[in-house]
Amino acid sequence: MIKDDDLEGYLKIPGEPTEVHASEITKSYVVLSWTPPKPRGRAPLWYVVEKMCHSPVPQTKPVKPPAQAQSPRMSRLRPQAAVASPVEAPVATPELGFSGSWEKINTAVKLQSPRYPVFDMQDGIKYQFRVYSVNMYGSSGPSVATEPIQKVDKDGKGGL
């Protein structure tokens, strides 16, 4: 049986971190924590954290087409069409939509700890996070993304 310790000297590119989650949620920030990859290799390791914003989807209303006036001559040439029903624009759900892209949030720091505080979160907006392990040989794939997370508001509501 091969053990993780046996692979450490042979492994070049690290595996992805696991169990990424919010270990603290406040009205000012969220602290992300994760488990380092196993095996990770012996090269110095750091992490890259990414976020994806979930923004509220605006509500849309049904749109009626403009009434079409027919000249008396045209109404004699064609039979009168049945009354048209309003054209329905898609109605957005109150659920949250994705911004659609992942954004690196710790580009200025070579993060070596499996914890990272996130301060630049907007009130009432949910975010997902994922983490990569990186060393001098390359980068892992992304971790599994967190569930949507938001800061707590002044009333203590929000979180996961």
Rank of each mutant, 00 (worst) to 15 (best):
E88D: 11
K27T: 05
V144L: 11
G15A: 06
I25D: 00
V48A: 14
D153M: 02
Q70P: 00
G124W: 00
Y116T: 01
L96D: 07
A22N: 12
V109I: 10
T146M: 11
T93I: 06
Y137E: 07
E24S: 05
T18Y: 00
G41Q: 07
T93Q: 05
S75P: 01
P66Y: 10
I2M: 12
K157T: 10
P39M: 10
M121Q: 09
S33W: 07
C53N: 11
V49D: 05
P94H: 03
A145V: 05
D120E: 12
A69M: 12
A69G: 10
R76A: 08
R78A: 15
K3S: 13
A89H: 14
Q112N: 07
L7D: 10
H21P: 02
S75A: 10
S71Q: 09
V63Q: 15
T93D: 05
K104V: 06
G159T: 04
L7M: 14
K3Y: 08
W46S: 14
L11Y: 07
A89R: 12
H21R: 12
D5A: 14
G124M: 01
V49A: 06
K104W: 00
E24L: 03
P148C: 01
K104A: 05
A82G: 12
T60L: 07
I25M: 03
Y10L: 13
K38W: 12
P114L: 11
L96I: 05
L160G: 03
K12W: 00
W102E: 00
Y116Q: 05
Q112I: 12
Q150H: 04
S143K: 02
E16I: 01
S101Q: 00
V118K: 04
R73D: 08
Y132N: 02
D4P: 13
P56V: 09
P117E: 00
E19K: 14
E24W: 00
L45H: 13
Q150G: 07
M136T: 11
E24M: 02
K51W: 01
S23R: 09
Q112D: 07
L45R: 10
P86G: 12
V144Y: 01
G156R: 04
S139R: 15
T107M: 09
V83D: 06
V83E: 10
E19G: 13
E19T: 14
E103S: 01
P66L: 12
Y137V: 02
P142L: 09
M136D: 04
K51C: 05
Q122H: 05
E19R: 13
A108C: 02
V20C: 02
P37Y: 06
P86Y: 07
S75C: 06
G138N: 05
D155C: 06
K3V: 08
V91A: 14
I13R: 10
P148G: 01
P17C: 09
E24D: 03
S143Q: 05
M74W: 06
P36G: 13
F98W: 07
D120R: 08
A84T: 08
F98E: 09
A89N: 15
T35A: 14
T26W: 03
V109H: 02
S33L: 04
Y10M: 11
S28L: 15
Q128S: 10
P39F: 14
G124F: 03
K151N: 01
E103K: 01
T93Y: 01
Q70N: 08
A67K: 12
M74V: 14
R115S: 09
K12I: 03
K51Y: 01
D5P: 00
P66T: 13
R42E: 12
V152N: 09
L32R: 05
P117R: 05
